[in-house]
Write a protein that binds this DNA or RNA. Structure first.
Length: 749
DNA sequence: GTCTTGGATATTTTT
DNA sequence: TATCCAAGAC
């Protein structure tokens, strides 16, 4: 049995209060670094110690990673394992993401809700494809209606539980009306593919609660204690879901920090946390304000900054940690100088202060800022690792394999079918596919149905028909294999859940028989990356099989769809970690460097003129600072090259908002003289090197060739660093001044 | 069916 | 600048 006393023994008073609270609504305002996860996990254990059945506890997080961590820590506290099969009927606490919870609900109640339970889950690239298809059928140009923008609008609507009908009703202007049409079409296409997108998972679960009283009642009974982490980042759909679920028992505990809300652009609504006490007037409120992470100095910088936000709950972070040293603020000449300065400082911290590389992180607002920083680190032989957004599951070869499985599991899945039909090339051309699409529409069948009817379609040549038949037979064979079905391909929905842990075998068969293996063997050449990745996928399937003895392809696919591998932000093995500020949330590092503190960068240009967005940028900056435990480095560059344009920058307003006495400013620009052309030595050196690199190969009188202007002779070279120019007298085009970096001149002779 | 090329585009990205 | 994509060339 768990000892309740022991659970709170090493906690502070407010932490204890939060852990010990059992019944009724609870709001925990958890400042940065205040031991939030500790409180959450202890609270779960404490509930169990009070005799509450573990299975009635639901803890919701935003990322799989957070769920995984919480699971581990709770396992430790409870002294027993939590085996999560992704289902609703488990004898232990359910600790998962919002999306995973909804998926479980939808799968469990699929028949009642009117869903086939083998539905595909479309990720953002699938979604994008469907949006494009919708635009095409509606004959809308992608120039006037960029798929990304349209999709964002639709996604936003879904997150606010706005149906296509609602959207149409409230659409005033032409643009919104058009988006409404796309939204409607998009939903139809998804339905035809028997697919849900990420947003649908939430939306459909909320709808199920609304329309199916028994579903709601069962879930309310099932989950009588609810905890929600990162509550400041919930959107409308998540908000409604949580509150409807909690309505019966009102045992809802939310944890969050309004100052760390950085996903408004994705539909997160900071009001959810700001107004919790209005939603539950009898809510107990606990504030965790003691920070265990950072030095007094770092905390002071962060606090002073965030105090400039108006939309926030007043909160004062404090710490018993050391004062610590002042933060370093580099005012650099340009981005190269900035990267150089930061790198030197990091090296100094390692050499003179005993930090190791994996204690160091570099944050930036945009991925594009990483490049220059990488170059500088590489030049100094500093190992680094970029926590990227491009994930394993987004790789082409992985998507190919999974698309095959999806077609096997869900024949209606058009996005996957289209992807796979001719990958690798097997003689089913685009034209052929178009004919199938037309046939499908004309004969009220699916794309898959059309493929099956290949020989009935006039205008297809014998070769195409043969290719299609071969493909169809293959898929049917795999389907048999997947579902252990002796009969002809199963269509009955419940057939799809009966296969027996054979995902690995199926995947291997698909990879080999489809020709993907041979294709990547050949295509690979010197780089066999693709095959390696496919093998990695196969071993992940094997892992799934062994953990889920009676799992199925459908199950496997569902699970895989909700996993992005930022979750695998693993141990970086002795390297500096580089990531965006968004990716940094929830992490901590002894040494943190934040680069690009400039107007237009942080705060980002898109936030200009919008006070609310500016506040979000400020919170982003706050999140960055509060990741630092001991040393903080901040930098800005006086000049920065963005998209090939070198521009004078303006310092970020946030710099002035930080507590100045906590900053040690190192000015590398020599601002007065800089503008007069007498650059800092480092910059001058770099300019000279650039001039040499670009202009060195050309001499006056030299014969050169230009792609457009043809042959010419060099009349003059003007060394100007990366802007180094040459005047060329062309034989036919006359005299031109060209910037060598872009002109790509070719020396002749 | 694959390669080339011009044109548009350019934050952040838990699921 | 770099990257991605659709359309056209071979």
């Amino acid at each position: 049995m768990i000892d309740a006393q022991e659970l709170v023994a090493d906690l502070t008073e407010p932490q204890r209060e939060a852990v010990r609270h059992v019944d009724g609504p609870l709001l925990i305002i958890a400042g940065a670094g205040s031991g939030k996860t500790r409180v959450l996990t202890r609270r779960v254990a404490h509930l169990v110690s009070q005799g509450i059945p573990a299975s009635s506890i639901l803890a919701i997080t935003f990322t799989n990673k957070a769920a995984g961590e919480m699971k581990q820590r709770i396992e430790k506290l409870l002294g027993r394992g939590i085996r999560d099969f992704g289902r609703l009927d488990q004898p232990w606490p359910t600790i998962c993401t919002f999306h995973s919870l909804c998926l479980r609900i939808l799968r469990h109640y699929a028949p009642q809700i009117g869903l086939a339970n083998n539905f595909s889950i479309y990720d953002s690239s699938d979604q994008n494809k469907v949006i494009k298809d919708a635009l095409k059928t509606l004959e809308l140009s992608t120039t006037n209606f960029p798929p990304g923008t349209v999709h964002a609008k639709i996604s936003n609507a879904k997150n606010q539980l706005i149906s296509p009908a609602d959207f149409t009703r409230s659409a005033g202007d032409f643009y919104s009306k058009t988006v409404a049409r796309v939204y409607e079409k998009y939903q139809k296409l998804l339905a035809a593919s028997n697919a849900l997108d990420f947003d649908d998972l939430l939306l459909r679960a909320v709808q199920a609660f609304r329309d199916q009283p028994t579903v709601l009642k069962e879930m309310q009974e099932r989950f009588s204690y609810i905890l929600i982490d990162e509550y400041q980042d919930t959107n409308r759909a998540q908000y409604v879901l949580a509150h409807v679920l909690a309505q019966r028992h009102k045992n809802i505990c939310v944890v969050g920090d309004p100052d760390q809300s950085i996903y408004a652009w994705r539909g997160a609504d900071i009001r959810n946390i700001m107004e919790f006490e209005q939603d539950y007037p009898d809510a107990k409120v606990v504030r965790l304000e003691q920070n265990y992470r950072s030095t007094k100095t770092i905390l002071s910088i962060a606090s002073k900054l965030i105090a400039h936000n108006r939309q926030r709950k007043d909160k004062s972070l404090w710490t018993e940690n050391d004062q610590g040293e002042k933060a370093t603020l580099f005012l650099a000449g340009d981005e190269h100088d900035e990267a150089h300065a930061v790198t030197q400082r990091l090296k100094e911290l390692k050499d003179k202060h005993g930090y190791s590389w994996n204690q160091v992180a570099v944050f930036y607002r945009m991925n594009s800022l990483s490049r220059v920083m990488e170059d500088a680190l590489r030049k100094e032989n500093v190992p680094y690792y970029i926590a990227r957004g491009v994930e394993f599951y987004n790789r082409k070869e992985i998507k190919d394999v999974l698309a095959y499985l999806r077609v096997v599991a869900n024949p209606s899945d058009e996005v996957s079918l289209e992807r796979v039909a001719n990958t690798p090339a097997r003689g089913i051309s685009d034209g052929t596919m178009k004919q199938f699409a037309t046939y499908a529409v004309g004969n009220a069948t699916s794309l898959w149905g059309a493929l099956c009817d290949a020989e009935k379609i006039s205008g297809l040549n014998a070769r195409a028909i043969k290719a299609c038949k071969g493909f169809v037979e293959q898929v049917i064979g795999w389907r048999r294999m997947a579902f252990d079905d002796g009969e002809e391909a199963a269509v009955a929905a419940d057939m799809f859940t009966k296969s027996k842990g054979r995902v690995t075998k199926l995947m291997e068969a698909v990879v080999r028989q489809s020709g993907l293996e041979d294709f990547y063997k050949k295509a690979g050449g010197e780089e066999q990356d693709e095959l390696g990745n496919i093998n990695e996928l196969i071993s992940s399937a094997a892992e799934y099989d062994s953990g889920n003895p009676d799992g199925s392809v459908v199950d496997y696919l569902a699970q895989v769809s909700l996993v992005s591998d930022t979750d695998a932000l693993r141990d970086n093995g002795g390297a500096v970690t580089m990531m965006t500020l968004h990716a940094a949330k929830g992490l901590e590092f002894p040494v943190v460097a934040m680069i690009g503190l400039e107007e237009g960068c942080l705060p980002h240009a898109r936030a200009r003129g919008n006070p609310e967005e500016l506040e979000e940028e400020r919170r982003l900056c706050f999140v960055g600072i509060t990741r630092a435990q001991e040393k903080l480095i901040i930098s800005k560059a006086a000049y920065r090259t963005i998209r090939g344009l070198r521009e004078r920058t303006v310092a970020s307003p946030f710099l002035n908002e930080m507590s100045q006495q906590d900053l040690q400013v190192i000015d590398r620009t020599g601002v007065e003289s800089f503008s007069e052309g007498d650059e800092d030595g480092y910059i001058r050196q770099r300019m000279e090197a650039e001039s040499e690199r670009l202009g060195g190969q050309f001499k006056r009188g030299q014969l050169v060739r230009h792609k457009m202007f043809g042959l010419g002779r060099v009349a003059e070279i003007t060394p100007m660093g990366s802007q180094t120019r040459a005047i060329i007298e062309f034989n036919t085009a006359g005299s031109k001044t060209l910037i060598l970096e872009y002109a790509k001149l070719e020396a002749v002779g």
